[in-house]
Nucleic acid binder design. Structure first.
Lengths: 115, 115
DNA sequence: CGTTATGCATAGATAATCTAAGTATATAAT
DNA sequence: ATTATATACTTAGATTATCTATGCATAACG
């Protein structure tokens, strides 16, 4: 578990969540686990941190929610990405990659052999 | 000029500034221009945005400042990176790269041929 | 002598997470 | 039965951070 800075968490939460939801609809608890998986345990979000972000993204119209009753009888609030969300994810990716290139440029890491 | 999100700016400002100062001592106005250069014009910081960050980094002991009178007669506050700052930059790089790998992993971008 | 570029500082508005606490149910263990 | 643990969502308040706007000041240029 890496202790990412608050600001890095803040900058990454939106593209990460949208990215997970582009894989298919999911719900809070599951998103947290998925994040832990794809980060090889480096990202461990607290629930109280995720839900406000989900609410904000829904408010912005990037995701939408629906309550679903599972076979086990448990209620889950599933989120899915909207068209606006897909567009936002596209922008987020582009911005992240732009910033990443600046970082590599500054840090003088040779990327000429990439791809 | 890309309009980076606030959070992405927040997450990048520290490693970017430390990265520039690792190239050698510099001052506010010059740092802004350097940032514009290495980002191919994508990053255009307002001065009122940079100075508070410099003050914070100095308060944290990551950089230190000294007033220098140039030959032109202009006073400039030069900042240089401290040992603690170099260590912080090292961590920032590692964290950024970790997060970047998660992004690539999530976005399913093939990086197997990199490096 | 006026305009532009250079150069630093800060107050107040704004925006965002993070901690902590609360609520609730299913399942497994004892 | 009862306890503990994992699952599952919400929100208030504290904290932290930039961003806009403004002010001050000097050098260079025309």
């Amino acid at each position: 578990m890496i202790s990412f800075s608050k600001s890095l968490v803040a900058a990454s939460s939106k593209p990460l969540i949208l990215g997970v939801l582009q894989e298919g609809k999911s719900y809070g608890y599951s998103i947290i686990q998925r994040m832990k998986t794809i980060s090889n345990g480096k990202i461990e979000w607290a629930d109280g941190m995720l839900y406000p972000v989900l609410h904000r993204l829904e408010k912005e119209g990037l995701i939408k929610s629906e309550w679903i009753l599972s076979e086990t009888g448990r209620h889950r609030k599933y989120y899915s990405i909207t068209e606006a969300g897909k567009a936002a994810l596209h922008d987020e990716k582009a911005n992240w990659m732009s910033m990443h290139e600046v970082m590599l440029n500054l840090w003088s890491i040779d990327t000429s052999t990439s791809q």
